[in-house]
């Protein structure tokens, strides 16, 4: 959870060591290899379908995500079942709101949480790691000490407190998730930067009078790109899960906004009352997203890391 899995770290580290040597032809090779991976390719296709569904799906909805169908309210188990006629393709939730619209909105939210949260982690983690690794010395030890300490703070505590202190909104949610998921990223980036900064081409640039900032942007960052992509792709599903956990604790987004985690925990609560669709539709999308993202992540890892073929 929260991007701290050592597996992702190990995988990402593995891969860069190799890519450093490979040089420019890497991206072309990697793309070829990725295209040969059928499972990953299928998952990319599926993911594109899902994103299209989120974008185009609302056009087919008869109800928006907050409208209450007053006619069926109070008798959801009988009249709120999925049906084409009523316009509730996925059925209705306990309040008579259209689950089709809500699932679309929730899928969008969850994907956004994953992507933006991962980007935040990427941004903070990379900055932190590059600064620590490149400048070294005291800066390095202070920055990494902070990471060590944050590692031992229970994540649940940090997330709860951030959401409690700052109130709920998309922004807070992203900040809360980003805040706890950049740690591993910073460690990986630091290690890679350390390895890079003493290499000949960097020395050469430095001798040629290129400024430190320029070196970082021109030479260090581009070489980190691969590891970042792989790690971020593995981080997305972890963040989606983290958000669900937050929703389960009742600290998620404010109505009418919802997320897959929130819908699933509502659906799981009412599953004994004959409204199983309230659990199954959001759960399907949740599992599908996680499934595809894991395979895409695995595919990227394999593609970028020829050693494992």
């Amino acid at each position: 959870m929260f991007g701290r899995s050592k597996k992702a770290q190990a995988i990402a580290e593995d891969f860069t060591e190799y890519s450093l040597v490979r040089g420019r032809s890497l991206s072309r090779d990697a793309l070829d290899r990725f295209l040969q991976n059928k499972a990953a390719l299928f998952c990319v296709f599926f993911m594109v379908l899902m994103i299209l569904f989120v974008l185009i799906g609302p056009a087919f909805a008869k109800w928006n995500n907050e409208e209450i169908d007053w006619n069926i309210l109070g008798d959801i188990a009988e009249q709120g079942a999925p049906s084409i006629q009523s316009g509730h393709y996925f059925g209705a939730d306990e309040l008579g709101r259209d689950l089709y619209s809500r699932t679309i909105q929730a899928t969008g939210t969850s994907l956004m949480v994953g992507l933006i949260g991962a980007s935040m982690a990427l941004l903070v983690g990379t900055t932190w790691g590059v600064i620590a690794g490149y400048f070294g010395g005291r800066i390095d030890s202070v920055l990494m000490r902070i990471v060590d300490i944050l590692y031992s703070v229970p994540i649940t505590l940090v997330v709860i407190l951030i959401l409690v202190v700052a109130g709920r909104s998309f922004t807070t949610l992203f900040i809360a998730l980003g805040a706890v998921s950049w740690l591993t990223m910073s460690r990986i980036v630091r290690a890679q930067t350390l390895a890079l900064k003493n290499r000949e081409f960097i020395e050469a640039a430095r001798a040629g009078g290129v400024s430190e900032v320029m070196i970082i942007f021109r030479h260090i960052l581009p070489n980190l790109l691969g590891v970042l992509i792989v790690y971020a792709s593995l981080l997305v599903p972890e963040l989606i899960f983290a958000e669900s956990f937050i929703s389960f604790l009742g600290l998620g987004l404010s109505e009418p906004h919802t997320s897959l985690g929130a819908l699933i925990s509502e659906g799981a609560g009412t599953m004994g009352y004959g409204t199983l669709w309230q659990l199954l539709f959001p759960l399907f999308f949740y599992v599908a997203i996680t499934f595809t993202l894991y395979f895409i992540g695995d595919g990227l890892r394999d593609a970028l890391d020829p050693k494992d073929r």
Binding site: L163, V164, G167, R168, G250, L251, S254, E255, P256
Partner: peptide
């Protein structure tokens, strides 16, 4: 706008 808050807040 609906704002739900945790109890103490």
């Amino acid at each position: 706008t609906l704002a739900n808050m945790e109890w103490k807040v």
